[in-house]
């Protein structure tokens, strides 16, 4: 077993065991922290597919979290206050909401990705950011769903056999979701599709010359990534039960990018470790001082300037980087 595989197993093992233990020993706060961490880790894992393996610096990933959450919130809102009876679906059911979240995000990724991927480099960074901001403003302008003030989700997604009102079950679902997302990304990355994606990152022109339309590969990866993030968004909506446009602000997208880089892009455990470090650090620093963004920001700068390879690189260095 390589050091990296071991690291992934240890990380996931700790994440599976510690939160329930805290919960059962009377520290429910830490379970909440772990659930949030797990959900954001799913988003970071999905971002790693395009950012890490695809080399596509998407600065709009928080939009998918937001869209996914609203895909839970809006149907739930209508379930309570009417307006969608005509479609004949149980709009409070998770079996409607979660597929909706995934589908909406996949569609948004398809449409915006088709445009974004025509551009390169810094254009791509800025345009992905701008499209995310477009969603932000669109939601802000819709008064029925609370606009700027956000929307309270009065009832969580109803799923057969589990109740998301139980924090432990919500955590369990998020954890399983994370494992599935990691498995999915790992499978894609190691497949022939993944080889093309990583090849195009290293040298796009070369891969095109092999007869592969890298645009189609990248767009597909972009859609898959958006869909996974949409799933994370649906979980996030169920976790917070309050959603607002603020959750898709561009600074949120920046945080997701940071989780990936901090943990170590192009590794399985990286986004999870990054999300964990980010959330725990945020929690620890903000309990010390209201000015916690100052050391946090300085740390971010330091990580970029001096820390190559992220936490995974640091923790598995002795193996020689392979």
């Amino acid at each position: 077993m390589t050091r990296r595989t071991l690291l992934t197993l240890v990380t996931m093992g700790l994440l599976a065991v510690l939160p329930p233990v805290f919960y059962l020993t009377g520290n429910p706060f830490y379970l909440d922290l772990a659930t949030r961490l797990t959900i954001l880790a799913i988003a970071a894992v999905s971002l790693n597919l395009i950012l890490g393996y695809g080399g596509l610096v998407s600065f709009g990933h928080a939009a998918y979290l937001g869209l996914g959450a609203y895909a839970v919130g809006i149907p739930a809102h209508h379930w309570l206050y009417g307006g969608l009876e005509g479609i004949g679906l149980n709009t409070t059911s998770g079996l409607v909401q979660i597929p909706l979240a995934v589908a909406v995000c996949a569609l948004f990724a398809l449409v915006t990705g088709a445009i974004c991927l025509r551009t390169k480099g810094v254009y791509f960074i800025m345009i992905t950011m701008a499209f995310a901001q477009m969603v932000y403003y669109a939601i802000v302008s819709i008064e029925e769903y609370g606009g700027d003030d956000g929307l309270v989700i009065d009832s969580r997604s109803e799923l057969p056999g589990i109740s998301l009102d139980d924090p432990l079950q919500l955590f369990a679902l998020s954890y399983v979701g994370l494992v599935v997302a990691m498995g999915l990304v790992r499978m894609i990355v190691n497949s022939r599709f993944g080889m093309v994606l990583q090849g195009a990152k290293g040298n796009n022109e070369r891969v095109v010359m092999l007869g592969l339309n890298t645009y189609a590969f990248r767009l597909t990866a972009y859609v898959v990534s958006g869909a996974i993030a949409g799933f994370a968004g649906a979980l996030l909506g169920n976790f917070t039960t309050f959603i607002s446009p603020e959750m898709m602000d561009w600074t949120r997208s920046g945080e997701l990018m940071f989780m990936v880089i901090l943990g170590g892009a192009t590794t399985s455990a990286g986004p999870v470790l990054g999300a964990a470090a980010f959330i725990l650090l945020e929690e620890a620093l903000s309990s010390l001082t209201v000015y916690w963004h100052l050391p946090f920001g300085l740390l971010l700068i330091a990580v970029v300037l001096f820390g190559k390879g992220g936490l995974v690189g640091l923790l598995s260095r002795r193996e020689g980087g392979k």
Binding site: R192, F193, M195, L212, T220
Partner: peptide, 18 residues
């Protein structure tokens, strides 16, 4: 191998480990 798989025209396979 990437060049070989490109020639074989099965590059969109996302499942089998390459």
């Amino acid at each position: 191998a990437l060049a070989v798989q490109a020639r074989q025209g099965s590059s969109f396979d996302m499942i089998r480990p390459a």
